[in-house]
């Protein structure tokens, strides 16, 4: 692809890639905006949820996913963790000149397929090609609209001491997969990204545990970051148990070799859930019943300790502070 020069022909080509990929899914795609029937939206609930996110990832294709899939599921999950049913997506793409049309087509098709699987429609979009070096291969921004079912009040500041903290499966797969793919870490273990849409799982969870306080997707910064955000916002302490924290052996080994703490590794299909203690069993059962909830576990509890403080009971019996990182993981030992 060339920047600028191709004029209309070039634009048509790009539009063709995306429009043909999203064909049938986007009825209003010929207008400058998507249009929704409010009465239809209102059948799903009483509040609109609206979110946007930009996706930049290196490499574009990695075991278990690609940037297109990530861009769809990421926004779907951002809606779902608020308790919303995801309905519509927009998609803006910035492409570095020199990008191969074939690669672009693969990404577009992957997005289309991800949207189909998540039951959302990509209703509008835009593409731009920029000079070499002005962006890195391709940046995708997706924006999503969903509708929140009546009566639901999830909030990061709703967690109370005593609440159980759950995750929906093995942690750190995405972060490990990306690092492996990026640096060719010469590891035998093949770790796939956990990239997945979680709205169905969350629906099941909310049916089983209607008292759920909050749900957060543990993407960048891993569960350590999410737990700290929850502890800060709700002014509670949170203690998790290393023995109860679900990790794949391959990820454990990967972290051992790279010296990384899995609690800080990114996930793309994992959520942290806080529920009242009496609903924790029902919540766990609901999670385990869904394919995206395999490996779910209660990993800890909120408490009355120092507000904002997250700690982990280690396998050695000590209790270690799990703090929010300012930058990347950096040795502190002198």
């Amino acid at each position: 692809l060339a920047h600028g020069g191709g004029g209309k022909a070039m634009k048509d080509l790009i539009d063709d890639v995306f429009i043909s990929a999203f064909a049938g899914a986007a009825p209003e795609v010929l207008e400058d905006q998507a249009r929704f029937n409010l009465a239809m939206l209102a059948t799903h609930g009483d509040r609109l949820a609206f979110t946007t996110d930009s996706f930049v990832v290196d490499p574009l294709f990695f075991p278990g996913g690609d940037i297109g899939k990530l861009a769809v599921y990421g926004t779907v999950n951002d809606l779902a963790v608020g308790g919303a049913k995801p309905l519509y997506l927009s998609c803006a793409v910035v492409i570095e000149e020199g990008m191969q049309v074939e690669v672009l087509r693969r990404i577009a098709l992957s997005m289309a397929q991800a949207a189909r699987e998540a039951g959302v429609t990509i209703v509008t979009g835009d593409t731009k090609v920029v000079q070499r070096g002005a962006c890195d291969k391709i940046f995708i921004t997706t924006t999503g609209i969903g509708v929140i079912r009546p009566g639901l009040e999830l909030g990061i500041d709703h967690v109370k001491p005593g609440d159980a903290i759950l995750v929906n499966g093995l942690l750190g797969d995405h972060g490990a997969a990306i690092l492996c793919a990026r640096g060719d870490m010469a590891l035998e273990a093949s770790i796939e990204s956990d990239c997945a849409p979680l709205h169905e799982l969350i629906e099941l969870l909310l049916d089983a545990a209607p008292g759920t306080r909050c749900i957060r997707d543990a993407t960048r910064g891993g569960i350590a970051t999410v737990l700290n955000e929850i502890a800060d916002a709700s002014a509670v302490s949170i203690e998790i148990n290393e023995a109860a924290t679900p990790l794949r052996d391959e990820v454990r080994g990967f972290c051992e070799i790279l010296g990384l703490d899995p609690l800080y590794l990114a996930n793309e299909g994992k959520i942290v859930i806080a529920v009242p203690a009496q609903e924790s069993e029902a919540a766990l059962a609901a999670l385990l019943a869904h394919p995206h909830g395999q490996g779910s576990a209660v990993i800890g509890h909120a408490g009355l300790g120092e507000p904002g403080r997250v700690t982990m009971q280690t396998l050695f019996g000590g209790r270690r502070i799990v703090d929010m990182l300012v930058g990347e993981q950096l040795p502190r030992i002198c």
Binding site: R182, G183, A186, L187, I257, L258, G259, L330
Partner: peptide, 23 residues
């Protein structure tokens, strides 16, 4: 030891900060 992995980490600057350390 898993030298290939360690070499790859250093090459890709993955969690391999450079240190002018006596210790």
């Amino acid at each position: 030891k898993p030298l290939a992995s360690v070499d790859a980490m250093i090459k890709a600057s993955v969690n391999s900060p450079s240190a002018s350390s006596c210790g």
